[in-house]
Design a protein around this nucleic acid. Sequence first.
RNA 1: UCCGGCAUAGCUCAGUUGGUUAGAGCAGUGGACUGUUAAUCCACGUGUCCGAGGUUCGAGUCCUCGUGCCGGAGCCA
Length: 435
Amino acid sequence: MVKEKMNIARVNRISEFDGQTVQLNGWVYNSRRSGKIGFLMLRDGFGIIQCIVAKNDVGEDKFEEFKKITQESSLSIVGEVVKNERAPGGFEIITADLTIHHISTDYPISPKEHGTDFLMNNRHLWLRSKRQHSILKVRHEIIKATRDFFDSHDFTLVDSPIFTSNAAEGSTTLFSTDYFEEQAYLSQTGQLYGEASAMAFGRHYNFGPTFRAEKSKTRRHLTEFWMVEPEIAFCEIEEDMEWAERLIHFIIKRVLENKRAELDILERDIPQLEEALKPFPRISYTEGVNMLKEGGIDFEWGDDFGAPHETFIAEKFEQPIIVHRFPAAIKAFYMKRDPENEKVVLGMDILAPEGYGEIVGGSERETRIDVLEERIAEEGLNQEDFDWFLDLRRFGSVPHSGFGMGIERVVAWICKLPHVRETIPFPRMMGRLRP
RNA sequence: UCCGGCAUAGCUCAGUUGGUUAGAGCAGUGGACUGUUAAUCCACGUGUCCGAGGUUCGAGUCCUCGUGCCGGAGCCA
């Protein structure tokens, strides 16, 4: 039996236990035997380490027991931590004792190749694999960096509600739900509430799930995704762009500092990612249209950029770029008109390089109540639903700006994944509600 | 919603111009091996060929419809 009061080690800190006898608790990642010696790859959630199980060390009975273990069986190992160059990771455990907690039978994910649909059906188990583990560790670092960034600049996290009565952006499809005999929608953005918070706290951010019932089947779309949305009082569009750029620089630095091993497992091209630490070029929509025309692409001023247009412009740069001042007609009602050109709004999008497209969308907000009322009517939205929002322009209206950053798209880009579905533990997409 | 592709063993796939008994690798089980790195070697098994209908002497293969999945467009983060 495994002894009580043993040093319990975690694989990520195994070097601190060099030469000591420790206990490790985990699952079998893989194992192979060669007569009287076995090699057990133990996965403890913090890492994977090789454990040597030799008949001479553990005895006849324990060795017979070891022979029974299968992939993803759970067990505890007691043994000495030793340096060994032959072991992946540089350290291995010379097993003195092992206790089996549970034997797995027919674990579906073998160490060979599988299709995405099969793996997604087994997502609850797929999370145990090295690659998925690394992606979610990077996701965690990105989220933590985001929160640290805002927290360290006096932003207050103020959560926005998930159930809402109003559509903030008329064009997008909403999930509808029955709310005590009234219709409620799942939030597609926390922004309008964020504006209320900014007037109360000066600098605000919210971070939560958002829902879009778009029937999108592309590598960039989920129906449920996480978005961080800062909103800043007394902030104009140029400063808004600065905040977004500084945030992304900060995130990249932190991932490079703390998640290098994970990026290596994902075979991420590091120098290419480091390009994102350069300043972000700022291009107006009109300049973007000219770039398309010079590139021989048929495009009319006033049309919205499609994915191919975004890609065409973004591919000219190694780092993310900021596109700003879009035609008012194609953007949301709350964006402020450019005083120098009423045809455009003070909105901005950040396009990630390497074909990842839009990761940030933001704007300076319209401060004039009459303009907002007009725009709400134009969009065919219900004025009553926005009455509380319009109060923000009745009681001390000030210039303010904000943006939303999609976490999954940032994770996909930083990890250089082919699809956003692997960036979230349990993706929700059209045709995917389980597990 | 629109356009294109795919569907064969638990998994990944092959399957010729339509031809008689549908195959491989991996995983699994048993055995050999004290330094393996997705170990190797020997032995053993598995099929609603996505579903329905049609053409044909004969369909995994051809046709029609349906279903599921994948990619893209639109929309967006």
